[in-house]
Amino acid sequence: MTPPSPVPTFSARSGPSDFFQGLALLGKAWGLIFRSPRLLGLSALCAVVTLVALGGLFALLWVYTPQLLGWMWTLPTAWYGRILWYLVLALLFLVLLVVGANVTLPLVLAPLQDPLSEKTEELCGDFASPPFRLGPFLQGLVTSVAHTLARVFFLLLGLAVLFPLNLVPVAGNVLWTVLGSVWTMLWLAGEHLAAPMTRHGYPFAEVRRVLGQRWLLCLGFGVGVYILLWIPLLNTFFLPVAVVGGTLLYRGLRAVGNVAPPPSRALGK
């Protein structure tokens, strides 16, 4: 008996349910990983590397985040001021941990992202992973890292634009944390939607168009990935789940016509 296709079913038009459908992609990704031995093996390898990387990042931020906040806002002497200072410190630490994870992990795990995405598409049907050849593999790896660096630049650029809000103590710090988190969530969706689209030859302008057209769906997915980072143990599967979920998002959008067939297929490649 042929198992049902894991391609998610979306409506062709945006609606209020989009957010929850995007959020539900995390559950679909988890289920697909544990049903596929190949995906589970690749995800376990990613989890080991992720555990080491997140541990190092956590230790680094634990030491230096108080110094960064102290540079922007000196620790008050009044008790109520100290409470606010430590609250802002906790929020700043969380945002920097998320941003640091999203900068570090895609670069460290770049060689495993395309195999994860390709295997996910195989399970979705109408796709076969190309045979391994060293030349195309190295070319794809260089392209993947270059595009990841470009997308990380846009993440950091958005946070840099918001950073002057920190010059306003308390209110500005909190506002930067909230807006920075929302920006990171949207970026997360774009990052993991762009990965399979880049592999198929779509220009980044097409990724931006899809994000604008189905922003609520993408935001739901980004929120789910963001939350996953804060669940102990499960967060070591942060990148595999995001890659599989982003690939499912891409295939679901293709199925309802929000994304055209891959340029390579249109050109007969």
Rank of each mutant, 00 (worst) to 15 (best):
E121Y: 11
L96V: 07
G41W: 09
L105R: 13
G70W: 09
M197H: 07
M1D: 15
L249I: 02
G56Q: 08
I227L: 15
L167S: 07
S181C: 06
W79S: 15
G125L: 01
V49S: 14
L105D: 12
V152A: 13
G201D: 12
L109E: 11
F238E: 04
L248K: 09
S43Y: 10
V210G: 05
L234H: 07
L165S: 06
L157V: 14
H192D: 04
A266F: 00
A171G: 04
G27Q: 11
F58Q: 11
A59W: 07
V88F: 00
V95Y: 10
A24W: 10
V108G: 01
P262Q: 02
L188C: 04
L57Y: 06
P106M: 05
F154G: 01
G100D: 03
T65V: 15
F132E: 10
L267H: 11
M72N: 04
T65W: 05
L138T: 05
F163I: 00
G100H: 01
V182H: 08
V259W: 09
V63S: 07
S11T: 12
L155I: 05
A260G: 12
P131Y: 03
L186G: 14
L75P: 04
V207W: 05
L60R: 11
G222V: 10
R133V: 07
F153P: 03
L107G: 09
L193C: 10
V182M: 13
D18C: 11
L51F: 08
G190L: 12
H147D: 15
D18P: 11
L162K: 09
L32N: 04
L228M: 02
I231Y: 07
V98L: 15
L96M: 10
C46Q: 07
F237A: 12
P8E: 05
R265N: 00
A59V: 08
C46H: 08
L54P: 08
G190W: 07
W71Y: 13
F154T: 13
W62T: 14
D114Q: 08
P115L: 04
V223C: 06
V182F: 15
L217M: 05
F221W: 01
P6G: 04
T65R: 07
A90M: 00
N173A: 11
L23H: 09
T74K: 14
G245L: 02
W79I: 14
A53Y: 02
G172L: 03
G135D: 12
A110D: 01
P169W: 06
L138M: 13
L149Y: 10
G27I: 10
H147Q: 15
R208F: 13
Y80Q: 14
R151V: 03
L234N: 04
A266E: 14
F34M: 10
S17G: 08
V168N: 02
L75Y: 11
S117Y: 06
V88I: 10
V244P: 11
L234M: 13
K28R: 15
C46W: 09
L45S: 05
T120A: 01
Y226L: 10
G135V: 15
R254M: 15
M72D: 09
W71I: 07
N173C: 11
L141C: 05
T198W: 13
Y250A: 15
T177S: 06
R151K: 08
G100L: 04
V207H: 05
V108P: 01
G31F: 03
P4H: 08
V161Q: 03
A53F: 00
W73D: 13
L39R: 04
L248F: 04
L138W: 14
Q113E: 10
V52K: 05
L60I: 03
V168T: 14
L155W: 08
